[in-house]
Design a protein around this nucleic acid. Structure first.
Lengths: 112, 112
DNA sequence: CAACCTACCATAGATAATCTATGTATAGGT
DNA sequence: ACCTATACATAGATTATCTATGGTAGGTTG
């Protein structure tokens, strides 16, 4: 059994922005990032692990997040990610792009 | 030289919705559809021909649009596309999905 | 103590949607 | 005669997602 309606989990191109935004709340491990996004979105956004980890690696390669191994409060091994300064700038830029494109889409969807 | 800011032309996953919406205004040829989207979006959305024609073919295969050759007002050969009844339903469904996902994204982007 | 569940990381391969580049054709203007 | 804009179309590359799989380890339950 499954979703109320609709078929897709994610809007392609938005996952990195969601991850960066989540990391503004403090450093977090991958599993926690996914859980956070899923929770705040009321389960609308499902972050699959096969999307999540490659995305985190891309973000690291680009220097927007850094990471280190650590322990969770429940004593489990986990890789903790945190935003870099460059990552903060990138987030601002992605937010601004997104809202620009979103405005454009809405203009078309309301257009005569 | 190029765009004011930002890098990407389209939000992947939204082009078919934009095309379907455009066709609610009446039948139109491919080039005209692209021009319309670009114009209403104040040039933010650039519909490349390499994206447009494959998308139109997908829409036809799924039975959401139909097409026929015709002549433009300026006497050029062009393929005119029009929404089918199934296409109208599909558009409604895509609009509803899009706003649901968008709401979810915004919830994350505003979240604590 | 064995079985199981959940948290947690990670990769390989498939799928899908876009872009870049290229090619064709023709109407109308200069 | 040439050029530009309109118009269609495809091939191949790129990118981002998903599906499926596999592993490790802590805690709980039978």
């Amino acid at each position: 059994m499954a979703k109320t309606s609709g078929k897709s989990d994610m809007l392609p191109g938005t996952l990195e922005m969601l991850i960066l935004k989540t990391l503004t709340l403090g450093e977090m491990h991958g599993y926690g990032i996914a859980a956070h996004i899923q929770r705040l979105s009321a389960d609308v956004l499902q972050v699959e692990e096969g999307s999540l980890y490659p995305a985190l690696q891309r973000l690291q390669l680009k220097g927007w997040v850094s990471s280190a191994w650590g322990k969770t409060p429940t004593n489990r091994r986990a890789r903790y990610y945190k935003l870099t300064a460059a990552g903060r700038k990138q987030l601002a830029s992605e937010v601004s792009d997104f809202s620009r494109v979103l405005g454009a889409i809405q203009a078309v969807m309301e257009g005569t």
